[in-house]
Simulated assay, not measured.
Amino acid sequence: MNDIVNKPVLDVEDIQEYLGIGRRQAYELVNSGQLHVVRIGRRIKISREVFLTWLNGQH
C-alpha cells in the first residue's frame, strides 16, 4: 500500500487503495464535489490535507 503520509498530492488510485474501494467508487467520490480536486489535463490530483480533513469529518 502506498503511504499517503509521505505524498503531499494524491492520485485517484491512492485514494482507491487507501480506502479499499473500487476504481468506479473512487472516481465517483472525486467527482461528487465532496473533495476539492485539481484537474490537470485528464489527471485528477487531490491534496493529502484535503483528503485527510474530509476523511476525519472536518470541513
Rank of each mutant, 00 (worst) to 15 (best):
Gln16Pro: 00
Lys7Glu: 14
Ile40Arg: 07
Ile44Gly: 05
Val37Phe: 02
Arg42Phe: 11
Val30Pro: 10
Leu55Ala: 12
Asn56Gln: 14
Asp14Ser: 00
Asp3Leu: 12
Gln16His: 02
Gln58His: 02
Tyr27Met: 03
Arg24Glu: 14
Glu13Ala: 14
Ser47Ile: 02
Ile40Ala: 07
Gln58Gly: 03
Leu52Ser: 04
Val37Asn: 02
Ile4Glu: 04
Ile40Glu: 12
Ser47Ala: 10
Arg48Leu: 08
Asp11Tyr: 07
Val5Lys: 15
Ile15Thr: 04
Val5Gln: 14
Ile46Gln: 07
Gly41Val: 13
Ile40Ser: 10
Thr53Gly: 00
Val38Ser: 13
Ala26His: 05
Pro8Gln: 08
Arg24Asn: 13
Gln25His: 08
Ser47Met: 07
Glu49Lys: 02
Phe51Pro: 06
Gly20Phe: 09
Val5Ser: 15
Asp3Gln: 13
Ser47Tyr: 00
Lys45Asp: 02
Ile4Met: 05
Glu28Ile: 13
Gly22His: 07
His36Val: 14
Lys45Met: 13
Leu19Ser: 03
Ile21Lys: 05
Arg48Tyr: 06
Leu35Thr: 04
Asn2Arg: 15
His36Gln: 12
Val37Cys: 12
Ser47Cys: 02
Val30Asp: 10
Ala26Pro: 08
Val50Trp: 05
Ile4Arg: 01
Asn2Leu: 06
Glu17His: 01
Ser32Asp: 10
Asn2Ala: 15
Val5Arg: 15
Ser32Cys: 05
Asp14Gln: 05
Glu17Ala: 09
Asp3Ile: 11
Leu55Glu: 10
His36Pro: 02
Val5Asn: 11
Arg43Tyr: 11
Val50Phe: 08
Pro8Ser: 11
Pro8Thr: 01
Gln34Lys: 13
Val30Ser: 10
Met1Ile: 00
Pro8Lys: 15
Ile15Lys: 00
Ile4Phe: 08
Val38His: 11
Tyr27Pro: 01
Gln58Tyr: 05
Gly20Asp: 09
Val12Asn: 04
Arg24Trp: 10
Ile21Glu: 06
Gln16Thr: 00
Val9Pro: 03
Ile44Trp: 02
Leu10Ser: 04
Ala26Phe: 00
Gln25Asp: 14
Val50Glu: 15
Asp3Lys: 09
Lys7Asp: 09
Gln25Cys: 07
Gln25Phe: 00
His59Val: 00
Leu29His: 13
Glu13Pro: 00
Ile44Pro: 04
Asp11Glu: 14
Arg48Trp: 09
Asp14Cys: 01
Leu29Tyr: 10
Lys7Met: 14
Val50Cys: 08
Lys7Trp: 08
Gly57Pro: 01
Leu35Val: 04
Tyr27Leu: 10
Glu17Gly: 03
Leu29Arg: 07
Gly22Asp: 13
Phe51Glu: 09
Gln25Leu: 05
Asn56Trp: 04
Met1Glu: 06
Gly20Trp: 08
Glu13Asn: 13
Asp3Pro: 01
Ile4His: 05
Asn6Ala: 15
Thr53Leu: 04
Ile15Asn: 00
Asn6Cys: 11
Arg39Asn: 12
Thr53Asp: 06
Tyr18Arg: 11
Asn6Asp: 14
Asp11Gly: 01
Gln34Arg: 06
Phe51Leu: 06
Leu10Val: 08
Gly22Lys: 13
Gln25Pro: 01
Leu10Phe: 10
Gln58Ser: 11
Asp11Pro: 03
Gly57Phe: 03
Gly41Phe: 07
His36Thr: 13
Glu28Gly: 01
Asp3Asn: 15
Tyr18Ala: 08
Leu52His: 10
Gly41Asp: 09
Lys45Ala: 14
Val30Gln: 12
